[in-house]
Write a protein that binds this DNA or RNA. Structure first.
Lengths: 184, 184
DNA sequence: CATTGATGCCAACAAACGTTGACCAACAAG
DNA sequence: CTTGTTGGTCAACGTTTGTTGGCATCAATG
């Protein structure tokens, strides 16, 4: 026994996250993940049961949104954009979900519940009314996900080449309006 | 000869568009398309060569952006949002590209070139400077695609349930700012 | 009527996939 | 030394995929 099972499990999971993030659900193969992990494909099955459960494990994650109560209300938009840029670049799970949520229903459902459960409370905190907060959270999500799509996945040059500060300058006011201002 | 070849070709193409739009590139199969078209899979190959060329044919399309010269400059944002909503709902090709562009490199490249070639000129018309116009076009694309992603693909309830007018009210000002206002 | 060309179907291929079960090798405990 | 458990490999399965070639069918042309 060279390794403990938890170690290999972690190795497999890391390889899976990378594959799912790069290629999406359908194009990543168990065999490919196993090769990356330098292990036999049957081990992946042994530890995770099947491809779907492996995916579930690989896409488990937390937006880690900050408590906004302490923050200056008029800077919420900027701070949120900054937070999402960080989150996006430090954790592959978001990429996994976006790449896969487009064709895989399970992943789409996970995405929905993540934004509903984690971004919605932030909007409630700022708005007060639960139902209009849902709309505000959705609007914010649409801009955040659109940015991620263009910057990290489609790699539209004009978006991918923008500096972090420029992104914050442009998107900050948008999120600020979606989350705090009245409809026109 | 029951049908002319152009007729069947059109039937196949329609079936292909629907499949690609619903399932994305990897999950749609030639056999599935053929079944929808009530035809043998080998016919699909005969008329389109291979899956990739069929996809190319199915995702060929035009944003049909209006000339903005005649329009009131201060309403450009709203008008563009309205135009995109129409375009999304009347032509499956955009959905095909979005569903597939996330995992298929060819589709991503087509997406890039469509937005670069068709949205960029609009931004130039409004801005004048070619390089900052590219950024403006990219920003507008990020919000438009983010909306489409949340509304038509992920189906986030709060976004999917918004009326057309509400979408225009909220996103119009965003596109207006991206396309015409100075950076903060 | 015979030839030609196009439309369509059928059967099969090789490759790749997720998944399974039998077997092997190392270590720990008795 | 034996025995049981655990980490790991190997070979194969059944299915599905894109793709190919041959064969039937029909219309028009000579």
């Amino acid at each position: 026994m060279r390794r403990t099972s938890d170690e290999t499990k972690a190795i497999i999971l890391a390889a899976a996250r990378e594959r799912f993030a790069r290629e999406g659900y359908e194009r990543t193969t168990i065999r490919g993940i196993a090769a990356d992990a330098r292990i036999d494909a049957s081990m992946v099955m042994r530890y995770f049961g099947n491809k779907e459960r492996l995916f579930t494990a690989a896409s488990d994650f937390d937006l880690k949104l900050p408590a906004l109560a302490d923050l200056p209300r008029e800077q919420v938009g900027r701070l949120l954009v900054e937070h999402f840029l960080d989150r996006w670049e430090e954790d592959e799970a978001l990429m996994v979900l976006l790449r896969s949520g487009v064709t895989n229903d399970d992943a789409a459902e996970r995405m929905r519940s993540i934004f509903a459960r984690q971004l919605w409370p932030v909007a409630v905190e700022l708005d007060g009314d639960a139902s209009s907060a849902a709309r505000r959270a959705g609007l914010a999500a649409s801009q955040i996900l659109g940015l991620a799509l263009c910057r990290y996945i489609l790699r539209l040059p004009s978006i991918a080449e923008m500096s972090r500060d420029e992104v914050v300058e442009w998107l900050g006011p948008t999120l600020q309006r979606y989350l705090t201002e009245e409809a026109a």
